[in-house]
């Protein structure tokens, strides 16, 4: 099928995008790489009257490095991480994760901000950015506001973004030398979305530890007992409390699904040295 008719408005920068979205109100949508919205347009599930294209907005495609963090523009593409055209704040985690998103032709177009704004709970960036404790920079009419990753997604496909706001950037704290991460996603076929995701990030120098289970029907949930045990006693101790923590967090999920989530987190923990 072909999309409905719409006006295509390329934005030169984030401010112009916000202005265009404000001007056209409810009937406008923004697009960056179009790898989520494109199929929805073609199938006429999405029927915007106006499409504001962000992919050439100069302030959204750049990267700003500081001592403690890196801010990635919302229109930075998955392949930019995979090919290391942008600096990596997370000791190899961002290129590793990016290189396993969908397929190369999709990674060449799809963007970080687009994936996060689409807010599919199974998306890699949704899980990873929450695991890393990233902060999202939302640009609206009154300037930029900051929202922590874990507060951004309200429910599947529902975010903090107002209709005339864009996800202008993502600030990722730099992992220090002693940090480690583990990431595992269970996919039935290469490139498909995850059915169960485990994310582990430990950064002893910053006292930071987060363990998440993702690819749920809702945003990723923390496994706090596992994170506490991991920091205090190490990966093997974390493994010992994993099953109970998943059962508590996902109590109403069918057992077969919980098992899948347990395995995903267990494998993520195994990456950083958990042994039974």
């Amino acid at each position: 099928m072909k999309p409905v008719k719409f006006d295509y408005l390329p934005a030169r920068d984030g401010a112009e995008a916000v202005r265009l979205l404000t001007e056209h109100g409810d009937e406008a949508k923004c697009i960056a790489g179009g790898q989520s919205l494109g199929p929805m347009l073609n199938l006429r599930l999405a029927r915007p009257a106006v499409l504001v294209d962000l992919h050439r907005a100069e302030d959204l495609t750049g990267v700003e490095e500081s001592r403690d963090a890196i801010v990635y523009g919302g229109a930075v593409r998955h392949a930019d991480f995979e090919d290391r055209r942008v600096a990596d704040a997370a000791r190899g985690m961002l290129p590793f994760v990016a290189s396993r998103i969908a397929y190369r032709a999709v990674r060449n177009r799809g963007t970080l901000g687009g994936s996060l704004s689409h807010a599919d709970p199974a998306a890699d960036w949704v899980c990873v950015m929450t695991g890393l404790g990233a902060t999202y920079l939302l640009r609206g009419k009154k300037g930029v506001r900051e929202v922590p990753a874990e507060k951004f997604i309200h429910a599947a496909f529902m975010t903090e973004l107002a209709p005339n706001e864009i996800l202008a950037g993502v600030r990722v704290p730099r992992l220090s030398e002693s940090a480690r991460w583990g990431y595992y996603k269970f996919c039935k076929k290469v490139g498909e979305f995850s059915q169960a995701t485990g994310v582990v990030v430990v950064d002893p120098e910053r006292g930071y530890c987060r363990v998440l289970v993702g690819a749920l029907d809702s945003p990723p949930v923390p496994l706090e007992p596992v994170a506490e045990a991991l920091a205090a006693e190490g990966p093997t101790a974390a493994l010992a409390v994993l099953d109970a923590a998943v059962d508590t967090a996902l109590g109403d999920y069918p057992e077969v699904n919980r098992q899948l989530y347990k395995v995903a987190v267990r494998r993520a923990l195994a990456r950083i040295g958990a042994t039974r």
Binding site: E150, V201, Y208, C209, S218, V221, P222, T248, L250, D252
Partner: peptide, 12 residues
């Protein structure tokens, strides 16, 4: 552990 804590939630 000094950072990274999140409010424990039960997934819907």
């Amino acid at each position: 552990r000094r950072a990274g804590q999140m409010t424990a939630v039960t997934a819907p």
